[in-house]
């Protein structure tokens, strides 16, 4: 890969690492993973389920907050605070900046998720005393959570390429929530008629499909996830992120920096 993209990605990662707020969020996620042990002890017989459910939900939710928070912070803020001026005054193409930011954010999220997941796995180990084959689904669930973050980050990047940090955050959260109900949205679209149906179908298919990326319930019951689903979800998340990042580039290429 292009060395400027790598430089920007590395610096983005460095910025996230040095941001104290992130540590707080990771800390809270770990706290919840730990807390799940306590809750698990109260709910007789389903300790493992509670630990997995609560732990992974915490990873997913805090992760999304982090993804949106840094995804927007690190791009909108650069525009707002004009740190971008001195970067674009270099032989840096605008697309390199966006792509570099994206990779930097993804690395950050992978590391964050790894740390948080470690907490969940340790809690699981504490409750179950050993890891079993069925726990592989937990790993798959974590992998899907990462894919979800990749999509959220790409969207955060897309929104911050044209709007203010606050608005970007609101938009990204809204799309995250809508995307969680993506299947129902497609259901609604399918039930409408005529022109509305065409419009609603297009809108429904433009929304990210977070429901399919959530297998926390299966992980809690240690049910295996189909290999095809892993493959399709991976390709899906990558294509969606590609579209969002490329869209961000298209907008950003034309943007007059204030």
């Amino acid at each position: 890969m292009n060395s400027r993209v790598l430089t920007i990605a590395a610096n983005t990662f460095r910025e996230a690492v040095r941001d104290r707020v992130l540590y707080n969020l990771v800390f809270f996620a770990l706290l919840m993973a730990g807390g799940s042990i306590l809750v698990g002890q109260i709910s007789i017989d389903i300790e493992r389920q509670v630990v997995v459910n609560l732990g992974l939900t915490a990873v997913s939710l805090f992760g999304v907050v982090i993804a949106i928070f840094i995804g927007i912070g690190l791009v909108s803020k650069e525009i707002e605070k004009r740190t971008l001026y001195t970067v674009l005054a270099r032989p840096v193409r605008r697309w390199e900046f966006i792509v570099g930011k994206f990779f930097g954010l993804v690395i950050t999220l992978v590391v964050n998720t790894f740390l948080m997941s470690l907490g969940v796995l340790l809690a699981l180990l504490y409750v179950a005393h050993k890891l079993e084959r069925g726990d592989l689904t937990v790993v798959v669930a974590i992998y899907f959570i990462v894919l979800q973050f990749v999509v959220v980050t790409a969207l955060a990047l897309l929104f911050s390429s044209f709007s203010s940090p606050l608005l970007s955050a609101v938009l990204a959260f809204a799309v995250f929530i809508v995307g969680t109900f993506a299947e129902d949205l497609r259901g609604f679209a399918a039930m409408s008629q005529g022109v509305t149906r065409v419009g609603a179908t297009i809108a429904a298919y433009l929304m990210p499909n977070f429901a399919a990326l959530n297998v926390i319930a299966e992980a809690a019951h240690a049910k295996p996830v189909a290999g095809n689903l892993i493959l399709f979800n991976t390709v899906y998340a990558l294509l969606y992120a590609l579209a969002a990042v490329a869209g961000a580039v298209l907008i950003f290429e034309r943007r007059n920096l204030k």
């Binding site: 294509l239 969606y240 590609l242 579209a243 298209l250």
Partner: peptide, 8 residues
């Protein structure tokens, strides 16, 4: 990037 967006 327009092609990439559409493909994606």
């Amino acid at each position: 990037f327009a092609v990439l967006t559409l493909l994606g």
